[in-house]
């Protein structure tokens, strides 16, 4: 029986820094995985689109039932002026709602942790607003709110602010108890405690809330536009989808849908990136283990 190759001195082996077959196999698997992480989703997505195209062509499906991907793209290009103007409107509502949700959510969360009575008084409202589906509140909002933009904004805000409020409140409360004691020992003021301990402790929680709220603000904006309907001066993407639906302009519906989906992806990627850069120095979630 031969001795295992593991005990062979290094200089008698082949060149290279890797001297263990298992290690080499592991390293190769790692490299393959790193490439596959990008290649696999792209290939699968491309195949799905190709299949979609083939199904339309092979079955000779008319474009007013299901347009092929090529037609959707060319419609996107031909209607670009209308669609991008609408995209800007939707984006405007989304980001304004998100901004107000951040201010309102963080503000309320700070208020909740500073005053028990404020929390007892207002948290039921927050929960009620959160658990009631926005589609059922929105019609009322458009009855009472004169300005259409404000109405849309309000709807998107209601959906987006709760995750920020809930997460930030949790974060503000989860500051390390020894550090809180330390703040007491050094006789920190309420403001100092908030500024130096509670807000930094809450940052990872807030950013988690922001990632959820970003997507929800877009959903809220789109849903509100649907409810607001085609009457009035609406011109967001959801309005374009409704309008195209009435005209049986299916390719344009798909083009608008594509824009909404892309917007959602961009929002998610942006908030994830913000989160990563804000936390990469110190938080567990953003630290790569070696």
């Amino acid at each position: 029986m031969s001795v295992t190759h593991n005990t062979t001195p290094r200089d008698q082996q082949g060149s290279g820094p890797i001297f263990d077959e298992e290690e080499e196999r592991y390293a190769r698997a790692q490299r393959i995985e790193a490439i596959a992480r990008w290649v696999v989703p792209i290939v699968v997505l491309a195949l799905s689109i190709w299949l979609w195209d083939r199904v339309v062509v092979w079955n000779e499906i008319p474009h007013y039932v299901l347009p092929g991907p090529g037609l959707v793209l060319s419609t996107l290009y031909e209607d670009r002026v209308t669609l991008f103007a609408s995209l800007l409107v939707t984006l405007q509502i989304t980001f304004m709602a998100l901004a107000v949700a951040i201010i309102g959510g963080v503000g309320l969360a700070v208020l909740f942790t500073q005053s028990k009575f404020a929390e007892m008084s207002f948290s039921p409202f927050a929960v009620i607003l959160q658990v009631t589906p926005i589609v059922s509140i929105a019609p009322l909002i458009f009855i009472y709110v004169e300005n259409r933009l404000v109405g849309l904004l309000l709807c998107a805000w209601i959906v987006a602010f709760f995750p920020i409020l809930a997460n930030t409140t949790l974060g503000l409360k989860s500051a390390d108890h020894n550090l809180r004691d330390l703040m007491n020992i050094y006789k920190a003021s309420r403001w100092q405690r908030l500024r130096f301990l509670q807000l930094p402790s809450a940052l990872p929680y807030f950013l988690g809330g922001l990632r959820i709220a970003g997507g929800l603000a877009l959903i809220g904006a789109v849903v509100a536009e649907y409810v607001a309907g085609t009457g009035g001066i609406g011109s967001g993407l959801a309005f374009r989808i409704l309008e195209a639906g009435y005209r049986l302009n299916i390719p344009r519906m798909f083009a608008a849908l594509l824009l909404i989906a892309l917007t959602g992806i961009v929002i998610f990627a942006t908030t994830s990136l913000i989160s990563h850069f804000a936390l990469r120095k110190w938080h567990e979630s953003a630290i790569k283990r070696e």
């Binding site: 390390d176 550090l179 004691d181 330390l182 020992i185 301990l197 930094p200 940052l203 110190w282 938080h283």
Partner: peptide, 14 residues
Amino acid sequence: DLGVVFQEPTLMPW
């Protein structure tokens, strides 16, 4: 007048 060391290091990770 007072310095305190706890059982845990109790540092601010950020």
